[in-house]
């Protein structure tokens, strides 16, 4: 999907810092995250456990527990307005009409003591902004999204409790709930990770279809590179609270630049066989005392002196494949 450069983005995160105050100090989890989603885009956010992907997304909806979290610096613009400066009323509007989120674990996202109809009905009611609906009307409206997510027997589904459904069906219900009101941005946080491969595939294809149909923008958070390749048109790679690389999906998979991205790609087992590279040595740094300079330097096979001292900024690289490919690595300092 193409977009015009220069139009104002749907979502723009600028220099976001998130700290967690814990016993023994401050965890500096997000360390200047920049992230942009344009209208109609499908953006992937890839990173391993603990890299801060979910923290980033939770700060967009302001659902981070504060305290212990706090945001010392940064702006999050949704349609030109800073979410971090919004009052309760505006924020509620963003949550009910602008942005919705799907979580990794559909079981935890649904309340076990209410039927699907009751939970979906509540979302329908909120989305009507004061307009009174009869019970019958709510039911009629609630059934529409259930049909859209291709759940079998939606009438009966409304009267079912979450426990009566399989994991895949629960995730479909969550997607249905997320798409009740016509949203502009959908944040999907590892929507298929807790499911089996064949079911995950169904969910991702469903998500893909709905997003195209409704022209919703998507942020897909995942740790699986393959998922990103098949479902997004732009990718951000995140490591230890920093974005390290961003590019059009095709470009990134054809030509990964950052040593972290490369290490990650080499470590993925291929269906073609031939063994796997040894991965990336070491582990994600301690956020209490993150390494100075580039946070990846202790694990980087190509670390230089400057990497230990300075934090790299983004260096752009224009190629024939797509618009901009940027990488936060000193190796590409001179390639501008």
């Amino acid at each position: 999907m193409r977009f015009e450069m220069g139009t104002s983005p749907l979502l723009e995160i600028k220099d976001l810092h998130v700290h967690f105050d814990v016993y023994g100090g401050t965890l500096r989890v997000l360390d200047g995250v920049n992230f942009t989603v344009h209208s109609g885009q499908k953006v992937g956010l890839v990173g391993e456990t603990g890299c801060g992907k979910t923290t980033t997304m939770k700060s967009i909806l302001r659902i981070l527990p504060m305290p212990p979290a706090r945001i010392p610096r940064g702006e999050i613009y949704f349609k030109g307005q800073d979410v971090l400066k919004m009052g309760e009323g505006e924020l509620r509007q963003v949550r009910s009409e602008g942005i919705s989120m799907i979580f990794q674990d559909p079981t935890a996202a649904l309340n076990p003591v209410f039927t699907i109809g009751q939970q979906l009905g509540a979302v329908v009611k909120y989305s009507m902004e004061g307009k009174k609906l009869s019970k019958k009307e709510i039911r009629e409206r609630a059934i529409i999204p259930l049909k859209e997510v291709a759940l079998p027997d939606p009438e009966r589904m409304l009267d079912s409790y979450p426990i009566q459904l399989s994991g895949g069906m629960r995730q479909r219900v969550c997607i249905a709930m997320a798409l009740v009101a016509s949203r502009e941005l959908l944040i999907a946080d590892e929507p298929g990770t807790s499911l089996d491969v064949t079911i995950e595939d169904q969910i991702l294809r469903l998500l893909h279809r709905l997003v195209e149909e409704k022209n919703v923008s998507v942020i897909l958070i995942t740790h699986t590179l393959g998922v990103v390749r098949e479902t997004t048109d732009r990718v951000y790679v995140m490591y230890a609270g920093n974005m390290v690389e961003m590019a059009a999906t095709e470009e990134l998979f054809a030509q990964p630049l950052h040593p972290y991205t490369r290490g990650l790609m080499d470590a993925v087992p291929r269906l073609t066989g031939g063994g796997i590279a040894d991965g990336i040595p070491g582990r994600i740094p301690d956020y209490l005392n993150p390494p100075p300079g580039c946070r990846f330097h202790p694990r980087c096979p190509r670390a230089m002196e400057i990497c230990r001292q300075e934090k790299p900024s983004f260096y752009g690289k224009r190629s024939g494949v797509s618009d901009n490919h940027e990488v936060a690595c000193f190796l590409y300092r001179d390639s501008e």
Binding site: S166, G168, M169, D196, V197, T198, I199, E200, D201, Q202, L204, R205, T224, L225, G226, V227, R229, E230, F253, M265, V268, R270, L271, T272
Partner: peptide
């Protein structure tokens, strides 16, 4: 075949190994 076609892969060569005609349906 269904299992193979469902795997997310990261390269074109792998894509070629995935059966194309079959897609995952139904619940386990």
């Amino acid at each position: 075949r269904m299992l193979l076609s469902s795997i997310p892969v990261i390269s074109e060569e792998e894509e070629k190994l995935k059966p194309k005609k079959i897609i995952s349906t139904g619940e386990i």
